[in-house]
C-alpha cells in the first residue's frame, strides 16, 4: 500500500537579504494511514519548515525541489485552490501556541462551524451538531457551553484541545502537530498525547508529531526521524532508534538530556552549536561537533543508507555508540 504522505528528496531554499539560503536538503519521509510518526531535532533544524512546506505555507520566494505526494496527489506546485482543498480536509495542523490558531474575538463554536461550513458545505445546524461531537471527542467538558465561550476562557491545555478540534473539523487524514505540547506542563502534556493516540486508534488519523523532546517522541510515536541542519540523519522504529542509536548525533542528543533514571549523573553537552543555515560545513553537517569524525566525513554529506531492520542512517563512520539510558 502506498503511504498516505510520501516526501521524496525535498529541498527548500528561502530568500534572505544575503541571497538564497538552503534550509532543507534531500529530505525523504513517509507517513502511513493511521500511523504516529515523530520528527525530532533542535530548533532551526528544519522540522517546522518541513511542515510548512507540506501545507503550502512557505514564504513567497521560496524555491522547492523534490516531491511530496499526499494520497497520490503531488503537493508541490499546487495553486492556491489546490492547497485550499488539501489544507483542512486532507492535511491539518496544530501549533505550539494554540492562541495563534484561535481568533480571540470569536467564540469557539463560531470558529469550529465556520470551518465546516466552508470545507464541508454543511448547514448551520449540522455544523453545530458536529461541533459538539468534536469537542466531546477532544474531551472538552460540557461541549455545549464551550461552544459559546471565547478562547481566553480556557486554560492552555484546553485551548490546545480546542485547536485540535478545529483542525479535525473537516475530517483530515493527516494531522501535523508542531510542538503542540512544548508550552504545556507535563501533566497536561500527558493528556494531549493520550488524546492524539486515541484519535489515531478510533478514527485512523495519521499524525506527524514534531518535537524537540526525545521522551515525547518515544512515548507517543512508532517511527521517528531525527533532523539535523536541514537533513534527516537517522530514521527507524522509535524504540530501537532511541535505545540503540547508530548516528552520533542521535546518541549525543540522548546523552545531553536528563534521563530521569539516576541522580548525580552529569549531562553530556554536545560541544559547539548547530550551524546556521547556509553555514553548514562541506560534508557531514555534524562532523565539526562529532567525536567520531574521520577525514572522509568532510568530503560529501553522507546519504541516508539502510542500517538494520527498517532503519537508515546518514553516517559513513558508523561508530560503536555507548548509550547512557
Amino acid at each position: 500500500m502506498a503511504p498516505l504522505l510520501d516526501v521524496d528528496s525535498l529541498a527548500v531554499t528561502l530568500p534572505s537579504p544575503r541571497g538564497p539560503l538552503p534550509i532543507l536538503h534531500d529530505v525523504s519521509l513517509t507517513v502511513d494511514e493511521g500511523e504516529l510518526v515523530g520528527i525530532a531535532g533542535e530548533s532551526g533544524c528544519g522540522k517546522s519548515l518541513t511542515a510548512q512546506t507540506l501545507l503550502g505555507l512557505l514564504p513567497p520566494g521560496a524555491a522547492v525541489t523534490g516531491s511530496a505526494r499526499y494520497a497520490g496527489t503531488e503537493l508541490l506546485g499546487l495553486d492556491a485552490r489546490g492547497w485550499q482543498r488539501v489544507r483542512g480536509a486532507g492535511i491539518a495542523m496544530v501549533f505550539q501556541d494554540p492562541s495563534a490558531a484561535l481568533h480571540p474575538m470569536l467564540t469557539v463554536g463560531r470558529q469550529l462551524t465556520e470551518h465546516m461550513r466552508v470545507h464541508l458545505r454543511m448547514d448551520r445546524r449540522a455544523a453545530g451538531r458536529r461541533a459538539v461531537e468534536l469537542l466531546d471527542q477532544v474531551r472538552i467538558p460540557d461541549p455545549e457551553r464551550a461552544l459559546r465561550a471565547y478562547p481566553h476562557q480556557f486554560s492552555g491545555g484546553m485551548r490546545q484541545r480546542v485547536a485540535i478540534a478545529i483542525a479535525l473539523a473537516a475530517r483530515p487524514r493527516l494531522l501535523i502537530a508542531d510542538e503542540p505540547t512544548t508550552a504545556l506542563d507535563v501533566t497536561v502534556q500527558a493528556g494531549i498525547l493520550a488524546l492524539l493516540e486515541r484519535l489515531r486508534a478510533e478514527t485512523g488519523l495519521a499524525v506527524a508529531f514534531i518535537t524537540h523532546d526525545l521522551g515525547v517522541l518515544s512515548a507517543l510515536t512508532t517511527r521517528g526521524y531525527i533532523f539535523y541542519a536541514g537533513r534527516v540523519v537517522e530514521t527507524g522504529p522509535t524504540g530501537s532508534l532511541l535505545t540503540a542509536p547508530t548516528h552520533p548525533y542521535t546518541a549525543a542528543l540522548l546523552g545531553a538530556r536528563p534521563h530521569g533514571t539516576q541522580t548525580g549523573a552529569t549531562l553530556r553537552p554536545i560541544p559547539g552549536a548547530p550551524p546556521a543555515p547556509g553555514e553548514a560545513p562541506p560534508g557531514c553537517p555534524f562532523q565539526p561537533r562529532c567525536g567520531y569524525a574521520e577525514p572522509s566525513c568532510g568530503e560529501a554529506p553522507p546519504p541516508l543508507t539502510p542500517a538494520g531492520v527498517d532503519r537508515s542512517v546518514a553516517c559513513v563512520v558508523r561508530p560503536h555508540l555507548e548509550v547512557a539510558a
Binding site: T187, L193, S218, G239, G260
Partner: peptide
C-alpha cells in the same frame, strides 16, 4: 508528576494522566 514524564523505552508507552 513523576508518572507524567515521558520516558524513552523500546516500545511507545504513554505517560499517565
Amino acid at each position: 508528576l513523576i508518572d507524567a514524564v515521558p520516558q524513552i523505552g523500546p516500545t511507545p508507552r504513554l505517560p499517565a494522566i
